[in-house]
Design a protein around this nucleic acid. Structure first.
Length: 293
DNA sequence: TTGCAGGGGTCAA
DNA sequence: TTGACCCCTGCA
């Protein structure tokens, strides 16, 4: 079978997609955009997306997704893995200096996943002043406590809860996820989303500055979290989420001195323009993996 | 073994 | 502009 130029083989175990370029699971899942993919000993990853729990592996330009059908690919995975975007074009446009050329070469298989904006919102609220393993544990516990069970050939998993699941329950229950002072933010933001105080679905119709302002109305959401939510949900690509890693790498590689968040924001808009979000991902992965700072 | 610093930021003063 | 904030891990 063929879908938009990609050859797909469906078997009893799942689907195999051939001829996938600019794609590397480690680069994709380890560049800071997602919290629900767990690396396995054989290099494959187990993860939950929406109501699907799958194992993915990649080898020789072939992407394998367990327990999935051709229809799943058309309805979910093609979009989720952003397979319709030509990353070689983006990379070429970004490689206008030696720094970016190195970063792009290093994370050549990065792709920006198109993730559910609500799940991202709560996940990145949890990420504030936190560590990745703990963020993953909290997201997992929220799903186990409030989500639906998903049985798959790979085991039992849980979907991420809906806004009404989190807004209707007591603080005691939310505190089970051990997110500490962020539990209050989760509860308040869930309530605001349920009441449509902020409409996540309408953000794509706004310009970037307006969409960011809307998100910052939510409890526990500042500039950094807002930018992550906009970028990783594929709502806006001209944002440059600046955390401590990105700040350090920008200071070392570009500014050659200390710089404020505002300076970095202005620089990225001017220098990377509409591709700021992609640039951020290559730089983040480069900084993290090479421990450049 | 115990103790302490600090972490993918946000909020309130 | 600055410090507190949950909880947990890593390290002395």
């Amino acid at each position: 079978m063929n879908y938009k130029g990609l050859e797909i083989n469906e078997t009893a175990e799942g689907i195999e997609i051939q001829g996938v370029h600019d794609f590397d699971l480690v680069h994709i899942f380890d560049c800071g955009q997602c919290f629900r993919w767990l690396k396995q000993k054989d290099g494959s990853y187990l993860g939950v997306v929406g109501s699907k729990a799958v194992r993915v592996s990649f080898y020789n330009e072939k992407l394998f997704i367990s327990g999935s059908t051709y229809d799943d690919f058309v309805n979910l995975w093609y979009e989720y893995f952003d397979l319709g975007t030509d990353y070689s074009k983006i990379k070429k446009a970004l490689c206008k200096d030696e720094i970016m050329a190195k970063a792009v070469e290093f994370g050549h298989g990065i792709r920006l996943l198109r993730q559910d904006i609500w799940e991202l919102l709560i996940s990145f609220i949890i990420s504030a002043n936190n560590r990745i393993p703990r963020i993953m544990k909290s997201v997992e516990t929220l799903s186990k406590t409030f989500g639906n069970e998903i049985s798959s050939s790979e085991g039992v998993f849980y979907s991420f809860p809906k806004p009404e699941d989190l807004s209707s329950c007591s603080m005691d229950k939310i505190e089970l996820c051990k997110a500490g002072f962020r539990c209050k933010y989760i509860s308040e933001t869930s309530d605001m989303i349920r009441k449509k105080a902020v409409d996540l679905g309408s953000l794509s119709d706004m310009d970037t500055a307006h969409a960011r302002k809307e998100l910052i109305k939510l409890s526990g959401v500042g500039a950094k979290v807002a930018d992550c939510v906009l970028l990783f949900s594929a709502t806006k690509f001209d944002v440059f989420p600046t955390d401590v890693w990105i700040k350090k790498i920008m200071e070392i590689l570009y500014f050659k001195r200390e710089a404020t968040l505002k300076e970095i924001d202005i620089f990225s808009k001017d220098y990377f323009g509409d591709l700021s979000g992609y640039a951020q991902q290559y730089l983040f992965f480069y900084a993290r993996e090479t421990k450049i700072s």
